[in-house]
Design a protein around this nucleic acid. Structure first.
Lengths: 186, 186
DNA sequence: TTTATTATTTGACAATTGTCAAGTGGATTT
DNA sequence: AAATCCACTTGACAATTGTCAAATAATAAA
């Protein structure tokens, strides 16, 4: 989350910080299968999932590949598009009816212009998601499909009940059939 | 590079910024095969390659896997370790005699404490390397080994002359033998 | 409950890539 | 120039995973 590490901030400043960010957060409800962002467009929002679950995905050879799942209290966006203001190859959809907070690029960067003292928290947020992404790469490179699957079950046990197997399969880089076979041979 | 996008800063401020960062940059010369960072330790430095070339790599099943190449005017570090202050699984070595600028974690974060107006530039740096990393993931997922190889040749034509084939092979996620076969069947 | 729809599993086979061993060619050393 | 070393290539075969089609299971709709 964007406000993960706030240990080194005093209370009045924290309150001001939270209020400033709350002012640019808009809460919306999306219903299952609704798109938060569509490929080919510039992604103008950073989404924070309050309830529900979302995924980002792209098409490869006509097939959907899931790049990221975002459960409660995690964020999702097409960040290359969000940061660089260029068209995205990703779609983002909610997989359940979800409550989502969106922060617009415009609002966030205007806030940073006005209150440069908040740069630090965005920097910390970026550090966090960078590390997460680096872990994902490590995971893809270091571990077998079976190991990646087991790790998902361990970290997010309810994911299996909440999303389709094909999404998990494409997320860990294999076909649904192969994942199905891996699951039975335990 | 860390100072890539400085269009929106006036001259006196830019000068001060550059001087502040120069004060914490230490230039060193490393000879071919020398390690900038060793696995199992916390990575205390962000390295900027001035001349030469470096790579980060880790061991999988006893074999070296190259995670990243850094040519002139690009940066390299074990960033998850650098940011989170935890032991790294990566090694970093120079593949040629190289001039390297190092910025210590301590110095950088002390500078940010003292001059929070520089947070913005570190934030921009993180945005940049995040996008680079996201592109690398996309590349691994979207493209075949052959396509990834062709892209490297296109983006960094001299890489082939400068580093061993096995490093490029492990970087694009295949064995050296497979890469060798891919290269001949053009 | 029955039907329809969607999700998951299984089978047979093809394609891709890895493994290990051997060979080639170029550069360096003595 | 011969010997040595190292990077790269090639061959034969095994292992893994993908593809496509069909079957089964699970869920939603009538």
């Amino acid at each position: 989350m964007i406000f993960e590490k706030l240990q080194d901030i005093n209370e009045p400043d924290l309150l001001e910080l939270l209020q400033a960010f709350q002012a640019i957060m808009k809460k919306e409800t999306f219903s299952k299968r609704q798109l938060l962002h569509e490929e080919g467009t510039v992604c103008d929002y950073l989404f924070l999932i309050q309830t529900g679950i979302a995924r980002s995905f792209y098409y490869k050879d006509g097939k959907e590949i899931t790049a990221h799942f975002a459960v409660e209290n995690t964020s999702i966006t097409a960040i290359d598009s969000f940061v660089q203001r260029k068209k995205s190859r990703y779609n983002i959809e909610v997989l359940e009816d979800s409550e989502v907070i969106s922060i617009s690029h415009q609002d966030l960067y205007t806030l940073l212009e006005e209150k440069p003292q908040y740069e630090k928290y965005v920097r910390m947020f970026l550090e966090q998601i960078y590390v997460d992404l680096a872990e994902r790469i490590e995971d893809l490179l270091f571990h077998t499909a079976k190991e990646r699957y087991d790790k998902i079950i361990e970290n997010t046990p309810d994911l299996l009940q909440r999303v389709q197997l094909k999404h998990i399969a494409s997320f860990i880089g294999i076909t649904q059939e192969t994942l199905s076979r891996i699951r039975t041979q335990v």
